[in-house]
Amino acid sequence: MGSAKQEKKDNFSGNIIGEVIRSSSTDFETQCYELYKFPPLGSLVTSDDENPVIGIVSHSVTESMDPSRTPRPRGPGLDNVKSIYDDSPQLNNLLTSRFTSITVGYTKDSSIVMKLSPFPPRILSPTRICNDSELNEFSSNFDFVSRLLNPSIGSSDDVLAAFLDIASGLKPDPEQYLIEIGKEIASLLPGQMRRVNLILRNACK
């Protein structure tokens, strides 16, 4: 393994949380390495290969690895869920955590392009959570908003709100940021000020 590659791995390996297991032009699904270790809803993630594709986490699921075998309740009388996992380490192999990310852009020549990627991420590409500076850069351009509001991609306003909650936290003046992006949202949702209001309310901590 070349030293450059090694270095990259060191920098980001901490953020790599799983691998792409399903991929399409508009979204991609990642299976987490560890049960429940998925990024919060609204997080910015990227596939970590030659053609990195950027997505926002829109949906997460944890379920049985084998669809034909669903977990059975252990109760009643149980008072600590954590102890069940401690007592039954095999659960980690029977269950799986996955999350879907809506594609909002890709990286080309180390700059962000806010369009659908011409190529969806390849299966088994690592997926990592973007770091603060990536998130900051990405969220400074409002072009992504229209994609998240597009009803055909199956995102919800809550995803946008969750993303804004995370992104605004990095800004020097979070409220100002929300006002500015709020104007963008308002202009994309003419006649729906109530909806705009809800999104912004949910984006405020």
Partner: peptide, 24 residues
């Protein structure tokens, strides 16, 4: 937004009114 006046109460609060002015 034809409903603006109906929702004026919730929209007129600080941040939201700033968002609404110049847009809706």
């Amino acid at each position: 937004d034809s409903n603006l006046s109906a929702h004026s109460e919730e929209i007129s609060n600080g941040m939201m009114s700033e968002v609404a002015i110049g847009t809706a």
